[in-house]
Design a protein around this nucleic acid. Structure first.
Lengths: 128, 128
DNA sequence: ATAAGTGTATTATTGCTATGATACACTTAA
DNA sequence: TTAAGTGTATCATAGCAATAATACACTTAT
């Protein structure tokens, strides 16, 4: 189930994008089901203490990406098909490493160096 | 030796940052020596077809980070000490993975998954 | 002396993006 | 019918960051 109270807003990244990412990750991880309702724009805005338009922007984006459907004058509902799921799955996995690898190569690093750095950083603080 | 002709400007990232990164990477990789001169602001601006102030901003940043020194009314010169070198070395290696790991964890990925993705992406196109 | 080359400081402009205010159309239930 | 709740469209605002224009002080070689 979607629990937006767990979404801690980071002031340095656009709020609407944080909402989008949050929902995508929940779908990807599988903590959320098809047909589940999202809060209304105003409700969610009140919860997060932000402007309803910001929520609207996030939800519209989710709709454009095929993760959400919104009947007229009613609350948005989570809905996606396999194809779309594959897209966000790729985005959250393979897509994540693309820029990273490009940068690492530009910096002159080797694969072995990167894997070593990765292991170290991963071990640091398994908090949360 | 610094060859700014190899610096292909990417329109979607600030130019002055691209210049800074370029120089840092050259220092880190070791294709450049202490005492080497940079082009004058105007010269470099002409070469890259950008505004001299943009070059100035980049060079000033490099100076603030301790990679460059600029005598009065003269061209800037590459100069750094071991401590500063260690800083940018860390920035270009360990520092690179920090955000990446944070994101991967947020997406619910495991270390093994990430390493696998990394190998795949690294193998893709060893061009350049 | 002069002209051309340095770096630098100050200010202006531009463009973009995120966010906010407001009004509208519609549904639903009291 | 009315009031409160939906989403939505349009426009305004604000803030920020990158880039640009301009003028200044100084050096150097002609």
């Amino acid at each position: 189930m979607l629990d937006f109270k767990k979404l801690e807003l980071n002031p340095s990244e656009p709020v609407y994008l944080q909402i989008v990412s949050f929902v995508k990750r929940q779908i990807f991880i599988g903590t959320v089901e098809q047909g589940e309702s999202l809060p209304s724009r105003r409700e969610m805005a009140a919860l997060l203490k932000i402007n309803p338009n910001t929520v609207q922007k996030a939800f519209r984006l989710l709709e454009e990406e095929g993760l959400v459907v919104t009947p007229p004058n009613a609350v948005s509902i989570l809905h996606w098909d396999e194809e779309i799921y594959a897209v966000i799955q790729k985005e959250l996995t393979a897509g994540l490493v693309v820029d990273f690898v490009a940068q690492a190569k530009a910096n002159g690093l080797t694969l072995d160096m990167v894997m070593e750095l990765l292991r170290n950083e991963w071990a640091k603080e398994n908090e949360r």
